[in-house]
């Protein structure tokens, strides 16, 4: 049974990460930026799992679980922030939130 080459897995992780990076850079909608950060975190976890699978060790999967935990905490706090911004500014434009008025 031929195995998946490590280079192909790493290149897939790099492509997904770059797509998330492009989306963070070009979007102005805050929810889309949060989704893009999720894509980037997922790609980073994919790179860990690919590297762990190359050596048949569990460490890559352990790191993926930590990334998953961090993504869950990050998305909950981020969505609470988005709700507050939408209630105060009545828009999802990230440029509208550039004044720090408390």
């Amino acid at each position: 049974m031929d195995q998946v080459p490590t280079e192909a897995g790493l290149i897939l992780a790099g492509v997904l990460f770059t797509l998330g990076l492009i989306s963070v850079l070009i979007r102005r909608n805050i929810i889309f930026m949060l989704i893009s950060v999720e894509i980037m975190l997922n790609a980073a976890g994919l790179a860990f799992v690919v590297a762990g699978a190359k050596w048949s060790q569990a460490d890559g999967q352990v790191m993926f679980i930590f990334i998953l935990t961090m993504a869950a905490a990050e998305v909950s706090v981020g969505l609470a922030l988005i709700l507050q911004i939408y209630h105060q500014l009545k828009t999802l434009d990230s440029d509208a939130a550039n004044k720090m008025k408390g």
Binding site: Q3, V4, P5, T6, E7, L10, I11, G14, T18, G52, A53, K54, W55, S56, Q57, A58, D59, Q61, V62, I65
Partner: peptide
């Protein structure tokens, strides 16, 4: 990034299934 990954000499992997028991023991 792709140029670096493709250019690197990577030994062929001997990937086998890492089950949840190994992950739990490591975690």
């Amino acid at each position: 990034l792709i140029y670096i990954i493709v250019g690197a000499q990577v030994a062929p992997s001997d990937a086998q299934i890492v089950d949840s028991k190994a992950v739990g023991m490591s975690l």
